[in-house]
Design a protein around this nucleic acid. Structure first.
Lengths: 149, 149
DNA sequence: CTTGATGCAAAATATTTGCATGCTC
DNA sequence: GAGCATGCAAATATTTTGCATCAAG
């Protein structure tokens, strides 16, 4: 995982480039996403930010606006599956994909170079200018297989 | 692609197995999904079903309920990306993955055996009982690259 | 000070649910 | 006939937007 300082640098640079402002709310949201490893819904993120910054009084609208901003600029990524809505996590990790358990909702991350390379090849085959790629493997995790049998 | 008759068989079998009923609405939704190749939102599907079955007067709630049913049972699959919500397509095609253009929203399907195999290997590595897997490559399609440059 | 950002509440969407009634089985 | 499914409308949930006000640059 990258240093928070690096992430923050990227963020401020990004904001400057687009004449956007660096606000306490935006930083709080970025930081929350960085410190809490995992995948969270906008609402969950809102709750965490509010909890950790009782002085700030961050509105849910700002969370949505900031998440969109972060995702658009590549600093955060979203994933969605089944009933659950969109979940966000910080980007700029080493690229990885996800295993998702349909029973308990657990998300496991993994990385596979062969797949990475293959994805590049496929994008090329279709003349796609690839900006991102994701893979999800859905099924039952070891734990839930035992529990259900 | 499978024959519609086969799909219908699967569907009726599934319904029977769970003591559910085979209704005109359910069939209309399955058929619409089968006949219209592509990826559609619940609302789009509702519109199409209503258009093709003016006598049926299908409610949006039924569409949601049926889509959930079809997805749960593996006869349909959903995919979601960015601003757009969940889109459904018929399952039981040869397994394939998706290239998604961020500019025009076009979805291209592709299939790659190497990736398929690799996914199986990864599921095994994590002791996952894999029921499904999806891959999305996101970027700019050939057409939009030209348009935007 | 200028301009973009925020919080709030309202609006717009999207999805789910309760219930009387209609259809399968 | 019994019981699930449906349509409708209301209830929820989710996301976006307008606007007065605030704060970063």
């Amino acid at each position: 995982m990258v240093e928070y300082a690096f992430l923050l640098d990227e963020f401020t640079r990004l904001l400057k480039e687009n004449q956007l402002k660096f606000t306490r709310q935006r930083e709080a949201i970025l930081k929350t996403l960085y410190e809490n490893d995992g995948h969270f819904s906008p609402e969950e993120i809102h709750r965490m930010v509010a909890r950790d910054n009782p002085d700030l009084n961050v509105g849910i609208a700002t969370v949505y606006r900031t998440l969109t901003l972060l995702e658009t600029s590549g600093l955060a990524e979203s994933i969605s599956f089944g009933k659950d809505g969109k979940k966000y996590e910080i980007g700029l990790k080493k690229h990885h994909d996800h295993l998702i358990c349909t029973a308990c909702g657990t998300i496991i991350e993994f990385h596979d170079d062969l797949i990475e390379e293959r994805q590049r090849a496929i994008a090329q085959r279709y003349h796609f200018n690839m900006t991102d790629h994701t893979m999800k493997i859905v099924g039952l995790c070891e734990h839930c297989q035992r529990k259900l049998s």
